[in-house]
Nucleic acid binder design. Sequence first.
DNA 1: GATTCAATAGATTCATTCATCCGTTTATTT
DNA 2: AAATAAACGGATGAATGAATCTATTGAATC
Lengths: 136, 136
Amino acid sequence: MPVLFSRACEYALRGLVEMASDPQIEQWTVQDLAQRTETPAPFLAKTFQTLVKHKVLKSTKGRHGGFALLETTKELSVLDIVHIIDGPSLSQDCALGFAECGVDAPCPIHEQWGEIREQLVHVLSSQTLYDFAEKL
Amino acid sequence: MPVLFSRACEYALRGLVEMASDPQIEQWTVQDLAQRTETPAPFLAKTFQTLVKHKVLKSTKGRHGGFALLETTKELSVLDIVHIIDGPSLSQDCALGFAECGVDAPCPIHEQWGEIREQLVHVLSSQTLYDFAEKL
DNA sequence: GATTCAATAGATTCATTCATCCGTTTATTT
DNA sequence: AAATAAACGGATGAATGAATCTATTGAATC
C-alpha cells in the first residue's frame, strides 16, 4: 500500500514536476517523461488524460505532439493535483475509518490527526509544482 | 483507498479498543466484537489470528472461548499494532514513492513530510489501546 | 462419550488498483 | 496522397486488498 497517494497520483506528480523543472521544453511526450521519471508509460498516459480533462495540461496529437503545462497550472498547488487524482479523502476522512467521526462523535485521534493533517494540507497547498521542481 | 491504515488495521484497532474499553469482560467472541464495532466478522477473525501469533491477544477455543488482551499488551502502543498489521511502511517510506529518497537524494517534501510523520509517529507511539479507549 | 460452540487454517470469491494492449484520431513530414 | 508519430478511448489482464466460506481442532457442557 502506498503511504499517502495512489500510484497514479505519485506518477502524475513525478511527471508534472519533471515538466516544471525544465520550462524550456514546451512539449513533452509520455515516452520521454516515463523514461525520465521511471514510471510505467501507458499508466502515466492514462492519468495524464484525466489531467487534460481537468485543464492542468494541454495536449496536442500527431507528430511533434505531446503534453504541456497550461499557464493556469502555475498557480495550482500540489494538493490541487492530489485532489484531482485521488479525490479529497486525504483532506477529510477519519484516520481510523470511523464513519461517524466528527466533533460530536470523535475518534480517539480525531483532534490530533486533525492538527497533523492540517500541517500536511498546508505543506501541499502552499507549494506549486514549480516549488517542488526547484527542490530537485 | 484508506487514509493511513489498511482496513484490516482499522478493524483490528476498533476491536482492540473496544476490548480495552471494558476490562471487566475477560473473554470476547469475534461475533460480539464485530457486531459492536460494525466490522465484517470473518475478516476481523483473520486479522485477530495474526495478533494472536504476535502475542497481542490470547485465544481459547471451544465453548466460552474467545479472545482476550494479554497483560503485556497494556504496554503496547497503537503504533506497535499498526506495524504488526501494516508493516513499517507508514513510518519509513517516502510520501511521494521515490525509491531513492533520502538525505542524499531527497524528494521535494522529504524534510517536511519527515517532520509531520514524526508527529504522527509520536501520537501513535505515545498512546496505548487503553488511552484510546478512554477517549471514547 | 456425544453435542455444542468457539477459534483455526486454507481455499475461494469479490472488488479495486495497477498496468498493458490495440484500434482510432489527429497533426506533421515526406 | 502516403507514411509517421503522437494522444485518445475502450477493453483487457494482472496483482493486491478486502471479504467470505468450509472443514478442522479443541474445550466446555450435557
